[in-house]
Design a protein around this nucleic acid. Structure first.
Length: 881
RNA sequence: GCCGGUGUGGCGGAAUGGUAGACGCAGCGGAUUCAAAAUCCGCCGAGGCAACCCCUCGUGAAGGUUCGAGUCCUUUCACCGGCACCA
């Protein structure tokens, strides 16, 4: 039989002119067939299908377990990152099934989005055809990997059955006052005729068209997520099984701040304004105020612009500022004096100038600030540029201090640090700034000139997109009745299929008939909403839909109550903020609208963020010195295979097509089999860290599986007689490995599980135990490997006389008594340095251990009497000399 | 700038405050073979030593706590990630 590794197009870049395990080798006996992954993998996948092993069935007798990996975008090709993500979920799912849980492990497709429209524009097809074809391709690539997924629950978010329920959900959220519609400033690409997300604006230009992006005010739909900001922040505390890093990122994103809102009265009313409301987190520095500044988008600035061309010109210029990080960092702080003046709230005779400044944001706080240059770097830059006063309000509690008014940087210590107030109006002279702020707020409230407020950075979620390939917003706009919800019996509002992508803009907008609909309220001719929903909406509730994917309502309460919450969610750190925050919002919204039980308010009990799969990059230079990248299979021994030209090896990075450092899982599965791919992506690195794909590592994984294959066959055909010492040793090791692997799998230590299984394999191969004990050990080995290498394990399980399917066998249990060693090795230290060791009975008296220890290290002590002997039972002995 | 994380052999990485370097890769030596591959056995941080005994050094750097520190504390350097004119 021709081994698959004979295929010279294998993706590892090794010219494999020989099979890895040829027949006729000493190890290959007539009764031992070679390890042929393709044969056994196909066979057992069929067997699992037939037995329906992975169908999720609610069972009141069992604890339930819902494991979910972030579902993929159907690009058409799976990559190693998918393999790693889904393998981790599969290990958890298989392990939980074996430990007696009713497991839900579903899969679906995050199928709406721009790439489908781009493909339609590029090649003239239809986004729907492109998407469903990709789904079929990817499913075809995924199934050979043998994931224990309940495929009967599969859906795509572009199925009308799914997005129709999403529309129903939207209408319920509208009724529950979770949705609103208002004007918003957006990035508008005048060539593409659509709104762009911030990340699609590069250097102020549209990423595709290259056209200068305009800031336009459009009426848009929003989810009122900011109403829940406080709860979304506070509830992070309860998410004990989420990475601290993710919780911190979310907390920063939500961005709670405590401060004071106060109004500066104008000396003379202007443009209908008699005061300027200001928000500050530093009311304790109010006596250091030197100016008031408003945003160029502030109503006052707009009103002044109408009168004064120089102000209008300044505001126009200030708004242009680039959106890139670099532009923001290097942008100079600029402003223009309005000539208006305001009174200081604590001193009627104190007047401050009012400026318009480019660094004030309209959509945070009130769009206006008071500047305190002594204690804010930005304000100090601004004050120095325009010769405004600098006045310190506090100095360090102790020590020397050069004040900002003497040329030093702005003094901005941590708010928890005590400082000495030199201009004080509330609280103690020496207090922390936190205390100073609270005292100032209390005083302002008592005296009635200000109000303490808690603010959030988190904005409402803009969900309107001027795109075709998304979920239509189920609303009809009537000239008389306004925005009217589509009646529920008319859902889903389906996307029309006869659309064209030959012109920019939204095809829904220019469709001849689709947009026309009678007003559901008055019956008059009206227009459909042609915006579709942000695709983040689709992925914000799919986890709930998996509990009843065919339901004619968004969810079914009893199914949702049984399966929710997701016990273990697994995905990339890149979704730490938006996707997870939106999902948390949606779960709350679904509780409020009666689609989820109250207990599912936080949908993901535990979250795991896995690292990427990386690979070295191979680079050479063309005649102009520009870098040229090469696929791994084009390189051998540091040289290009066809020309022999040397390549530069650049250190590992995330696999990407542009750098050509990609390894295709399909090729790996064809060459080595799914089990090898699964085993490799879990070995070597902790799951939360990146793992580097190497050809030698993949080959090593394959060799190991082949070795287990041989050992299992040897054990199965062994005629060796029992051997008391070896039998006991192996049996003890067997219980120990069961204990260890169970423990590390539960704590996501997949790489550690693999390392321990390597160790046990080494032990088994060297053991002189009798046939029966060896077979038992081998059977345990393959069972413990089964979550990682299910096909190989299934085949060997059967060979070794396992009962039924390994996939359905109960997880082995370790006998505690077998884990305890009778005799232990104690290292002996002298002054913390290891100088010897002793073998003692586990329960030997401390005094006796001390005696033996001193004896063992007498040479190192060199006659010196020990001052002290520290015995850590079962661990170590340290002699202090 | 602010917040967070990580620094351990040639490489990926192990080590509840208790024998630093598990396990794997690469490398070296041996067995097997006509020869090779595959497989099996062994070695594999640096330095010293006749020596697989043993000694010294060693977890980015410098201090500290402790009988004992990769692990805890302080300072510092480097790299990675997130946020970023948020008042």
């Amino acid at each position: 039989m021709r081994h698959p590794a004979l295929d010279k197009r294998n993706p590892l870049g090794h010219d494999r002119s020989r099979p890895l395990m040829p027949e006729g080798s000493p190890m290959s006996r007539p009764d031992m067939p070679p390890y042929s992954a393709p044969t056994i993998e196909a066979r057992w996948q069929a067997a699992w299908d037939e037995a329906g092993c992975f169908r999720a069935k609610a069972d009141p007798e069992k604890p339930k377990y819902y494991v979910l990996e972030m579902f993929p975008y159907p690009s058409g090709r799976i990559h190693m990152g998918h393999v790693r993500n889904y393998t981790m979920g599969d290990v958890v799912a298989r392990h939980r099934r074996a430990t007696g849980h009713a497991v839900l492990h579903p899969m679906g497709w995050d199928a709406f989005g721009l790439p489908a429209e781009n493909a339609a524009m590029a090649s003239g097809g239809h986004p729907k055809d492109w998407t469903y074809a990709n789904i079929a391709d990817m499913r075809g690539q995924m199934k050979p990997l043998g994931f224990s997924i309940d495929w009967s629950r599969e859906f795509a978010t572009c199925d009308p059955e799914y997005y129709g329920q999403q529309q129903a959900l939207f209408l319920d959220m509208l009724d529950a006052d979770l949705v609103t519609r208002r004007a918003a400033v957006v990035n508008w690409d005048p060539v593409e005729m659509t709104v762009l997300a911030n990340e699609q604006v590069v250097d102020g230009k549209g990423w595709r068209s290259g056209a200068e992006v305009e800031r336009r005010e459009l009426t848009q739909w929003f989810f009122k997520i900011s109403d829940m900001a406080g709860d979304l922040l506070d509830a992070l505390d309860g998410l004990d099984d989420w990475p601290a890093k993710v919780k911190l990122m979310q907390a920063n994103w939500i961005g709670r701040s405590r401060g004071l809102e106060l109004a500066f009265q104008m000396t003379e009313p202007a443009q209908g304004f008699d005061s300027i409301p200001v928000y500050t987190t530093r009311p304790d520095t109010l006596l250091g105020a030197s100016f008031v500044a408003v945003s160029p988008d502030h109503p006052l600035a707009k009103a002044l612009s109408a009168e004064d061309p120089s102000i209008a010109a300044y505001c126009e210029e200030a708004r242009k500022g680039g959106t890139t990080e670099e532009a923001i960092e290097t942008a100079e702080k600029t402003g223009i004096d309005t000539g208006l003046r305001v009174r200081h709230p604590l001193d009627d005779s104190w007047e401050l100038p009012v400026w318009i400044a480019n660094f004030i944001l309209m959509d945070y706080g009130t769009g206006a600030i008071f500047g305190c240059p002594a204690h804010d770097g930005r304000d100090l830059d601004f004050a120095r540029k325009y010769q405004l006063p600098v006045v310190s309000t506090f100095v360090p509690a102790q020590g020397e201090h050069v004040r900002p008014e003497e040329g030093a940087d702005a003094f901005t210590p941590q708010k928890s640090e005590p400082v000495r107030y030199v201009k004080l109006f509330a609280g103690e002279e020496v207090q922390t700034s936190d205390q100073g702020v609270e005292a100032a707020v209390a005083q302002a409230e008592a005296e009635g000139w200000g109000k303490g407020v808690t603010r959030y950075r988190l904005r409402d979620w803009l969900l309107s997109r001027q795109r075709y390939w998304g979920c239509p917003i189920p609303v009809i706009h009537c000239a008389d009745c306004g925005a009217v919800p589509v009646p529920r019996d008319q859902l889903p509002v389906e996307l029309p299929e006869d659309v064209t992508f030959d012109r920019p803009g939204n095809p829904l907008d220019r469709h001849p008939t689709w947009g026309r609909a009678p007003c559901p309220q008055c019956g008059k001719e009206a227009r459909r909403e042609t915006d579709t929903m942000d695709t983040f909406v689709d992925s914000s509730w799919y986890y709930a839909r998996f509990t009843a994917p065919q339901a004619v309502t968004p969810t079914e309460m009893d199914e949702a109550a049984y399966w929710m919450n997701v016990d273990q969610y697994i995905g990339g750190i890149e979704h730490a903020i938006l996707h997870l925050l939106y999902s948390r919002f949606f779960a709350r919204a679904m509780v409020k609208t009666g689609h989820l039980p109250a207990s599912a308010r936080e949908p993901f009990d535990a979250l795991f963020t896995q690292g990427m799969v990386t690979h070295e990059i191979y680079q050479s230079r063309d005649e102009n010195g520009r870098p040229v990248y090469h696929f791994p299979e084009e390189v051998e021994g540091g040289k290009l295979k066809d020309t022999g030209a040397p390549v530069e090896v650049i250190s590992s990075a995330k696999m990407s097509k542009s750098k050509k450092n990609v390894v295709d899982p399909v090729g790996i599965v064809a060459t080595y089999g799914a089990d090898t791919a699964r085993w490799f992506v879990l070995s070597d690195s902790p799951p939360e860290r990146d793992v580097e794909w190497t050809a030698s590592g993949a080959e090593a994984a394959y060799k190991h599986l082949s070795r287990v294959w041989r050992l299992a066959h040897e054990a199965a055909s062994s005629q060796d007689k029992p051997n008391a010492v070896a039998d006991t040793a192996l049996e003890r090791a067997r219980h120990k490995i069961v204990h260890e692997v169970s423990q590390v799998i539960e704590s996501f230590g997949f790489n550690a599980a693999i390392a321990k299984l390597y160790g046990f394999t080494n032990m088994l191969s060297k053991s002189d135990a009798g046939a029966g004990v060896k077979q038992k050990a081998a059977r345990t080995l393959v069972q413990l490997m089964a979550p990682m290498t299910p096909h190989l394990s299934e085949e060997l399980w059967t060979l070794l006389g396992g009962d039924g399917l390994c996939a359905q066998a109960p997880w082995p249990k370790a006998d505690r008594a077998m884990l305890v060693e009778d005799s232990i090795t104690l290292p002996i230290q002298v002054n913390g340095k290891r100088r010897g060791e002793i073998q003692v009975a586990r329960d030997l008296a401390v005094a006796e251990i001390e005696r033996l220890a001193l004896e063992a290290v007498s040479r190192s002590l060199d006659g010196v009497a020990p001052k002290k002997v520290i015995v850590v039972p079962g661990r170590i002995v340290n002699v202090v000399a």
